[in-house]
Design a binder for these strands. Sequence first.
DNA 1: ATGAAAGCGCTAACAT
DNA 2: ATGTTAGCGCTTTCAT
Lengths: 351, 351
Amino acid sequence: MSKPKLGDVAARAGVSPTTVSRVLNNRGYLSQRTREKVYDAMRELGYRPNAIARSLKGQRSRMVGLVFPTVANPFYAEMVYRIESFLADAGYRVILCNSDDHPDLEEQYFEMLLSNQVDGIITGAHSQVVANLPHVQAPLVTVDRPGTQKYPNIRADNYAGARMAVEHLVATGARNILHITSTVSEQNLRLAGYRDALTAAGMTPQVLELGFRTPLPRKRELIERYLKESTAGERADAVFASNDTYAAMALNWARTRNLCVPQDFQVVGFDGTETVRALIPELATVVQPIEQIATRAVQRLLQTIESGRQGRPDDTPSPHESDKEQQGSTADVFPVHLHEGGTLRAITVSS
Amino acid sequence: MSKPKLGDVAARAGVSPTTVSRVLNNRGYLSQRTREKVYDAMRELGYRPNAIARSLKGQRSRMVGLVFPTVANPFYAEMVYRIESFLADAGYRVILCNSDDHPDLEEQYFEMLLSNQVDGIITGAHSQVVANLPHVQAPLVTVDRPGTQKYPNIRADNYAGARMAVEHLVATGARNILHITSTVSEQNLRLAGYRDALTAAGMTPQVLELGFRTPLPRKRELIERYLKESTAGERADAVFASNDTYAAMALNWARTRNLCVPQDFQVVGFDGTETVRALIPELATVVQPIEQIATRAVQRLLQTIESGRQGRPDDTPSPHESDKEQQGSTADVFPVHLHEGGTLRAITVSS
DNA sequence: ATGAAAGCGCTAACAT
DNA sequence: ATGTTAGCGCTTTCAT
């Protein structure tokens, strides 16, 4: 028999399908003898319950969709790794979607996930697609960047992190601090932190915007050209980058030019993934607590899923919805810390 | 209505469920008018087909399971990213499983995937669990390391890559070449390549084995201690590492010690992911064609899935099974190339 | 060109 | 403590 089904087990054990189902789910009254008979039959047949059928019947799939730009980026990779691990522990499977920062793809993926009856979605996608989802049928949690107020957002304190990094640079005496980022926008809190810190110090922001979907080699070119030009006139002596890859590129450029790091040129990145810290331990960076963010995102999602399963027999919005969201928006910002590698000078206590 | 179903659409359009299904699947004869009526009804209701129900009925889920040690490792991250992209293009969704090099977890994941009726599995898991899977009901393709002869294996030419790297080191005049690897075993072809190259050059292999599940910081300690000891007595002047992370750690150690790279100390890694090459472009490494491997793995899987869907009404093994596998085992090894970064000396043509 | 009815594999009332 | 029955949402013969 190719794929034994519950009925086959029942027949073999000489009981009804219901009984087998009960054994499977450990529900209701079962005599010990029956249990054993059923287990034996299962083993003999190599029975494996069909999760698809269970989902259809039970109105829950125990699947969660993950929509992120690309797991090829270490930050998202570690995030996805963590999220998957926590969800697996909780008995959920994960459908992975790499949206490549592409709004169309993102939307398709959301459609697909809902079609697949996922119990929830965690997304760190960049575009505003999330905000425009009409009524998503599944609980949704955003990570890293707030797509909208409609859903809880879990993230690091990007603004504080950026400010801390730039203020540190200022304190070390850097006079000409450049910023490299993917995209310039209102929501870019790292950029905001940089700007505010610079302005407070009486300096002028200088920002290089690379775009999200620019290929890596091209980004590298852009960074090198920008640095070359910036060091030509008024000499740039520090870079604060919105992620570690850009920071590494700046650092590599400086080394190629035989600039003395950190004496003549300082670099600070953002993210502080384990990957990058293992590869370039000397790179100073603002470290995000990825594991904490992941844990919290999963918690929030699971609690929404569970609460949704009990109450709300119809589509009446649950009472505390807005409260919960407010909670979410404010409480789910995690502190970061500055990893002071060799690419950043220590602050000398001035007298 | 919370979640409109096919029947609701039918009612609204004034047709039978069958007709709606036909429109959905674009099958059979449909009048243009009917088509439009149905489409309108779908739009008005915000209908979204239930993929779970489709799977149950259709005996195919269009889901593929991915079992890899951890997507937190850039190599697997890029592999998974590529595989997911190709599969998405082909209309398949991906269930991601991080097995953490843990045989028990691996086994659980395989069980889970089969329970979820995946149409196939692609795995780069380390353990031998794959070999012992009794009769996996789904097509399976292994990637990177051959778990067994039972399934096709797609990978880079690890042996040739290692040999090439080590022979290059020998040719540059390195006299004391260490190897750092995760695990020493018969199947470790990078290790084999290293050994053979060294032996051929009349040198003695010296291998540091770190283990798979050792935490990164601990690995770093082990590497540094090993290098310290090795440079104390007979001075080590080169490291060939089985991946770029180990290579980077060796490199960082050398820099800390103010060894001149590559004059006094050379380093070559393995994998050559885009991530690492962006972060440490100067690191010499054996580059695997990840995208090619991913494409081929997906191709192989899809072709097996498709072929399985037509013939074979029962569980008779399909006739050409062994042939296909032989093909797979031999033809699916991809050539690598050596990226000569600044951590490797050029070969001087001797007279 | 369209519809009726059965069933994919499982679970949950509702019996007994 | 166990069995009967209906049905989750969809597709698919087999009619008409």
